[in-house]
Amino acid sequence: MTLPSLLQQSIAFLEPYEFSPTVLLVCLGAAVLYQRGWRRAGGGRGQALMFWIGLVAMYAVLQTQFEYYAQHSFFMHRLQHLVLHHVAPFLIAVSAPAAILGAGLPTIVHRHVVTPMRRNRLLRFLYAAIQEPLVSGAIFVGLIYFWLIPSVHFYAMLNVPLYNTMNWGVAIEGLLFWWMIFNMRAPGNTDMRHYGYRLMVLFLVMLPQIALGAYIALSDHDLFGIYAACGRILPITPLMDQAIGGLLTWVPAAMMSVVGGLVLVYRWNTQSRGAETPLPPTLRCAR
């Protein structure tokens, strides 16, 4: 293969399979806000790297030819959701982007949109409710199960609005869940939500994912007939496709709980060590 043809193929791969102005605008908007805020607030490099990898990964699985494969192969679909629901939101949330994105917003938006929203009691109540760790964990697992009910999955793969709802839903829900895990403070509360509580939720969401993944991977018949009906593009048998898809739901998805737990334990550890050594007086004033 010559270099120009390789280049041509790579560019063709980067073209969206189904162009969505909404995805493009949301990703571009987040990118511009983050870059502006990062310059103003002076965030860390490691932090920025994680945010960018997360954002680019989300865009890439939705707006390249990857999407074509995700529509026509079960395991590629599971891989897409692994990125949308687990890996990318995890990276974005662990990078603690709120302060930087906030700094990127123009003052006028802060005054007329963000502040009234923060004061709105209904919004505060709703936010606090969905950020309650057990509720958030239940929604996280519930969504995975819901979209994998064979009859629901069937229509989701055929109907474009339903398909988009599914993908947007898991991406937004993923952000909310991992945000709850890594956010330092409980909503509307100055106290820290206890690390132990969040660790427990991480452990609890792992179990049903393992059960579902194993059930799909070890199933001896084709659970999701829609892929046979609409054509598999990779030369792979239906059961092999399903087994890999099940494994992706089983192992890496559940592993993200372990990685999240390690991050929490590390932060817990550094924080409690920080609490033992008294802060120098100047820093105490700054706080």
Partner: peptide
């Protein structure tokens, strides 16, 4: 929302087309 793709040709030039059912 259906797909079709061509597999690599065999020695005799015949190739399989993956398509929807």
């Amino acid at each position: 929302r259906v797909a079709f793709s061509y597999e690599k040709p065999r020695k005799d030039g015949f190739y399989i087309v993956n398509h929807s059912g």
